[in-house]
Simulated assay, not measured.
Amino acid sequence: MGMASPNAEASSNNAMPLILLPLISTAFTPIDAMPGWFQPIAEYQPFTPDIEPLRGLLLGIEVGHNGWLMVAWSIGLATLGYRWSTASFKRDPK
């Protein structure tokens, strides 16, 4: 993310959405306790499939399909990050 920003000050602010993602997930509040309009936002973002299997394993409840979603999100984000970084390094003339 740092190579995509014009200067060092801007690169430190590029990670702000990543810092806020756990706050809008099910990390602190179960999805059933959230308002109806907010539930789809919290349900379909990358941190919720990571948190739900961990919660299930720690509490001894069923993990369900969230384990596969966690693997899919992880592979997808890793692939996206790899492609973005290799494209940035190839484009950078330094």
Rank of each mutant, 00 (worst) to 15 (best):
residue 1 M to K: 06
residue 2 G to T: 12
residue 2 G to W: 12
residue 2 G to L: 09
residue 4 A to V: 03
residue 4 A to N: 11
residue 5 S to M: 15
residue 5 S to Q: 15
residue 6 P to S: 12
residue 6 P to Q: 13
residue 6 P to M: 12
residue 7 N to L: 04
residue 8 A to R: 15
residue 8 A to Q: 10
residue 8 A to W: 10
residue 9 E to M: 13
residue 10 A to C: 06
residue 11 S to L: 02
residue 11 S to E: 09
residue 12 S to I: 14
residue 13 N to F: 15
residue 14 N to S: 15
residue 14 N to A: 15
residue 15 A to S: 15
residue 16 M to P: 08
residue 18 L to D: 14
residue 18 L to E: 12
residue 18 L to Q: 14
residue 19 I to R: 15
residue 19 I to H: 15
residue 20 L to Q: 14
residue 20 L to G: 10
residue 21 L to E: 03
residue 22 P to Y: 05
residue 23 L to I: 13
residue 24 I to M: 09
residue 24 I to R: 03
residue 25 S to E: 00
residue 26 T to L: 03
residue 26 T to Q: 04
residue 27 A to D: 06
residue 29 T to V: 15
residue 30 P to S: 08
residue 30 P to Q: 04
residue 30 P to R: 01
residue 31 I to E: 07
residue 32 D to K: 12
residue 35 P to A: 08
residue 35 P to H: 07
residue 35 P to K: 05
residue 36 G to P: 07
residue 37 W to R: 08
residue 37 W to V: 07
residue 38 F to E: 05
residue 38 F to K: 06
residue 38 F to I: 01
residue 39 Q to P: 02
residue 39 Q to G: 05
residue 41 I to L: 08
residue 41 I to S: 04
residue 42 A to L: 06
residue 42 A to M: 01
residue 43 E to I: 06
residue 43 E to F: 09
residue 44 Y to P: 01
residue 44 Y to S: 03
residue 46 P to V: 00
residue 46 P to Q: 06
residue 47 F to W: 10
residue 48 T to G: 02
residue 48 T to M: 06
residue 49 P to V: 02
residue 49 P to E: 02
residue 50 D to P: 00
residue 51 I to L: 06
residue 51 I to M: 04
residue 51 I to N: 04
residue 53 P to N: 01
residue 54 L to A: 08
residue 55 R to V: 01
residue 56 G to D: 03
residue 56 G to N: 03
residue 57 L to T: 00
residue 58 L to N: 01
residue 58 L to S: 00
residue 59 L to Q: 11
residue 60 G to T: 04
residue 61 I to K: 10
residue 61 I to P: 00
residue 62 E to V: 08
residue 62 E to A: 13
residue 62 E to H: 07
residue 63 V to M: 00
residue 63 V to A: 01
residue 63 V to S: 00
residue 64 G to D: 01
residue 66 N to S: 11
residue 67 G to C: 00
residue 68 W to S: 08
residue 68 W to Q: 08
residue 68 W to I: 12
residue 69 L to D: 01
residue 69 L to V: 02
residue 69 L to W: 07
residue 70 M to K: 01
residue 71 V to C: 05
residue 71 V to H: 01
residue 73 W to Q: 02
residue 73 W to H: 05
residue 73 W to D: 02
residue 74 S to G: 10
residue 75 I to C: 12
residue 76 G to R: 02
residue 76 G to Y: 04
residue 76 G to E: 06
residue 77 L to Y: 07
residue 77 L to T: 03
residue 77 L to K: 05
residue 78 A to L: 13
residue 79 T to S: 14
residue 79 T to L: 15
residue 79 T to M: 13
residue 80 L to Y: 14
residue 80 L to S: 09
residue 80 L to G: 08
residue 81 G to P: 03
residue 81 G to N: 09
residue 82 Y to I: 09
residue 82 Y to D: 09
residue 83 R to I: 12
residue 83 R to G: 13
residue 83 R to N: 14
residue 84 W to F: 12
residue 84 W to D: 13
residue 84 W to P: 00
residue 84 W to G: 05
residue 85 S to C: 11
residue 85 S to T: 13
residue 86 T to W: 08
residue 86 T to L: 09
residue 87 A to F: 10
residue 87 A to H: 11
residue 87 A to Q: 12
residue 87 A to K: 12
residue 89 F to W: 13
residue 89 F to M: 12
residue 89 F to S: 10
residue 89 F to G: 05
residue 90 K to T: 09
residue 91 R to W: 08
residue 92 D to A: 08
residue 92 D to C: 10
residue 92 D to K: 10
residue 93 P to H: 07
